[in-house]
Design a protein around this nucleic acid. Structure first.
Lengths: 324, 324
DNA sequence: AGAATAGTGTCTATGAGACATTATTAT
DNA sequence: ATAATAATGTCTCATAGACACTATTCT
């Protein structure tokens, strides 16, 4: 009954007895492994990339997987473990530890996955985290990561895991990629990691609407067109430059002017853009709504709402518990 | 490195070696307990209540805690475990199992809490779930629950856990209670359960905005004023009856008319209300925005956004991974 | 009768989106 | 010179919210 309580109540039933025994000698009970996996996202050449490591051992050998590892019992919390794993793979945590307020690396809990059969060897409960980072160098071999690399999310196949693509979206335009590479058509992901990644992508797309987290994909100073490129890459659709510009500046606390501009204009011409840095707002108000792709119903007579008008399969906005 | 992988890689460092050993004989490694806790919310007499169980044993004895228990290794997933625990405490799962489409009990993952010291005895990782239910009878003693009861959330003290109340809200109006009872001023919650509960309340308040989940607090058929009462109780503020009515009917798929009305009018007069049931929309579009309590900045000149205008500490919309 | 409530109508301020326009810069 | 782009302005439509009003029902 009581949560977090492995040892107190006398057994009152078969299940309770099991728990009671397990509490007094946890090693005698069927063990559960707790791991932490990280969906680390960044922007490269205008398209969304995810950090993956290649599995070199039997179960799912050759498949790519999310970086992750075991929670160190009694030594660290979940957030710490996620940050540690990410640092081991990419060596990018120094930034996160050093400058907290100008938050260089965003890390938040995504969800926990604990189906008994998700790992063939034993029951593994994985706490998934979501990380946003500005463009980073390729993960250097020689660290803990044997083979880690950034992959365009558009190269991955997220569908076979029982997740239908967003309604109306052809599902191959996700990355909105600049490069039309068609090398590996669908990179297989290990275990249920495709499912986790899909949840992470849903989360990012939703969060851009009402949080200033798009700035986490950019360096400290950035321009409005660069910020727009983040939205376009994550949402996979073009945005109106003029309206986006005005909208961003109208949201209090989203960006703050640095008073300077870029040194050069756009690559193909145009004036130099002013630079900004992230403001102190933690929530966008009003939100930057994603362009609606449902045909505008144009004055639905109230009282008889047409069913099915709401796009199914779309992900609601999401966030885990506040990182404490 | 590889996630969910307790057994494959040869050790390449101290941490990796630990993991490797643990994989080949998990019982030799420091164990971690995995539990599932449920924040079960319902509406009683117009105010929000949460299901709590009283701890009868040493650690935190006498404190109230969220219902929960151990994940059965190899036997069940997290969602199943949460549903099972809730059923053991309240006996209300029959409904959820029986009628899935007219979904009588909403259950979703809230977040996972795994600080090493959150339980004094061992490292316990708790996966928290959030449940919404229509008014239920008091949990019957005789089940697994020794002492379980519904408590008004306004009776609980959620603050000492490092969580600041929503900006501008006096923090004692949370329940929006009908009863101005001031009996137990602040019921202490065990472990970090106050923190979990606070996260759950943030989540519910946010979800009512863009999801039709308010209907999960009501019986199958309900009236618009009853639906409004849910919003008022969860948000802790009065809503404009007329505008709310029109707004609800204008959102496609939120509610569908049953064609009938209530048998009696309001308790203090008024015509009989029409009845509705939940529509098939899973997302409210456009959303039912929570009334803004920030002083309307009244035409902020763009380009120099006033910092701090965005209410801090407010919870963003949130949802866990899609229940699979 | 009096009071409270369900439901609808109307008006206004605001924001989103569609263009249009000007100024600036790379090629 | 030409083309592309940053940034701003203007216009229209939809929605949120304030308020008023009618009809219905309980005490």
């Amino acid at each position: 009954m009581a949560a977090d309580d492995p040892s107190t109540q006398p057994p009152t039933g078969p299940a309770a007895e099991q728990e009671w025994l397990a509490a007094y000698d946890p090693r005698a009970y069927t063990p559960i492994a707790v791991t932490v996996d990280v969906v680390a996202l960044t922007l490269r050449q205008g398209s969304l990339h995810v950090l993956l490591v290649e599995r070199g051992a039997p179960p799912q050998q050759g498949c790519w997987a999310l970086p992750g590892g075991f929670l160190r019992a009694g030594e660290e919390g979940l957030d710490e473990a996620a940050a540690r794993e990410l640092a081991e793979e990419t060596g990018l945590l120094g930034a996160a530890e050093a400058e907290s307020p100008p938050c260089r690396l965003h890390l938040e809990q995504l969800g926990t996955y604990g189906a008994p059969a998700r790992d063939p060897r034993m029951h593994v409960v994985s706490v998934a985290y979501l990380a946003f980072a500005p463009d980073l160098p390729d993960p250097q071999a020689g660290t803990d990561a044997a083979a880690a690399a950034w992959h365009p999310v558009s190269d991955l196949d997220l569908r076979p895991c029982g997740r239908s693509p967003a309604a109306g979206v052809p599902a191959d335009t996700h990355g909105g990629g600049v490069d039309g590479r068609t090398g590996p058509p669908a990179l297989p992901l290990a275990f249920d990691h495709a499912h986790i990644l899909a949840d992470g992508l849903d989360r990012v797309r939703a969060k851009l609407e009402y949080s200033p987290l798009a700035t986490a994909f950019l360096p400290h100073d950035f321009t409005i067109p660069e910020l727009r490129a983040v939205y376009e890459a994550v949402w996979g659709e073009k945005l109106h430059p003029g309206n986006f510009h005005r909208k961003v500046l109208s949201v209090p606390g989203f960006v703050e002017s640095t008073g300077t501009t870029t040194q050069r204009g756009g690559a193909r011409g145009g004036p130099r853009a002013r630079t900004y840095h992230a403001g102190d707002a933690r929530l966008l108000h009003p939100a930057l709504l994603r362009p609606t792709r449902e045909a505008p119903p144009s004055a639905v007579p109230p009282g008889e709402a047409p069913q099915g008008a709401t796009p199914p399969g779309e992900a609601p906005p999401g966030e885990g518990p506040s990182p404490r």
